[in-house]
């Protein structure tokens, strides 16, 4: 089939403002948006700039706005979109070039919640044991691939970049609810501060957009509950 692509382009060396460029190409309906973008880059316009790595929905590099929604280009089939497809960079973070955005702020926030295992007790002879139930408690948030789709879908984050954003809170949830972890005292002050979980207005854009199907808003609500009942 013939597909019509409208892509938002921005070259910091030439452009002041981003602009749209249009491309026509032959595609199979069962191909993914990523395949079409690569065909455009390889055969029509080598200056088109995008990130992709594994191309199989696990590295999270090719998150972009496709037909108005945040999606992974490698997990979106052309037949599900029709012949007219618009592609833009994610919103809420600065664009470096074309579809590539600057994730510096995103990862600074990710690091601020200490996304690693904290436990000062000496490790036992065998592994630190955990029941299947304890493991299930935080299973959902272990699925995060840090693609940034949830954070850049959040209108609160668009308006106020001081907000940690859903992705950082999801990562905090993964460790806060892990029975082996003892880092709550270090993480909770960041989560309770001005830019923390209380900025979440339960819009559900994050949950809607997550390519891993994580209940992001639910995870944020659980962190809120944890903070609340520690105080009361």
């Amino acid at each position: 089939m013939k597909a019509h692509f409208k892509i938002k382009r921005f070259n910091p060396e030439k452009d002041r403002e981003p602009h749209w460029e249009e491309y026509e190409l032959e595609v199979e309906p069962t191909e993914r948006v990523l395949d079409a973008l690569q065909t455009i880059k390889w055969e029509q316009d080598g200056t088109l700039t995008l990130r992709r790595s594994c191309a199989h929905g696990i590295c999270g590099s090719d998150a972009m706005v496709i037909n108005g929604k945040n999606r992974l280009a490698c997990k979106t089939l052309i037949k599900d979109l029709g012949s007219h497809i618009t592609v833009e960079p994610l919103r809420g973070l600065p664009v470096i070039k074309d579809l590539i955005i600057d994730f510096t702020d995103f990862f600074a926030k990710y690091r601020s919640i200490k996304p690693y295992f904290i436990n000062d007790e000496p490790p036992p002879d065998v592994e630190r044991r955990q029941s299947p139930r304890q493991r299930a408690r935080f299973d959902d948030t272990t699925k995060c691939i840090l693609c940034g789709i949830c954070t850049t879908a959040c209108p609160v984050f668009w308006a106020d970049s001081r907000y940690l954003g859903p992705a950082a809170i999801v990562q905090a949830h993964r460790f806060l609810f892990d029975s082996r972890d003892q880092g709550a005292e270090e993480r909770l002050p960041v989560l309770s501060a001005h830019g923390g979980v209380w900025k979440c207005r339960t819009v559900f854009n994050c949950t809607d957009a997550c390519p891993q199907g994580i209940d992001v808003t639910g995870a944020i609500a659980e962190v809120k509950k944890l903070l609340l009942f520690r105080k009361l």
Partner: peptide, 9 residues
């Protein structure tokens, strides 16, 4: 950006 220590306090 991490909130400043003053903002947090």
């Amino acid at each position: 950006m991490r909130p400043s220590s003053a903002e947090r306090a």
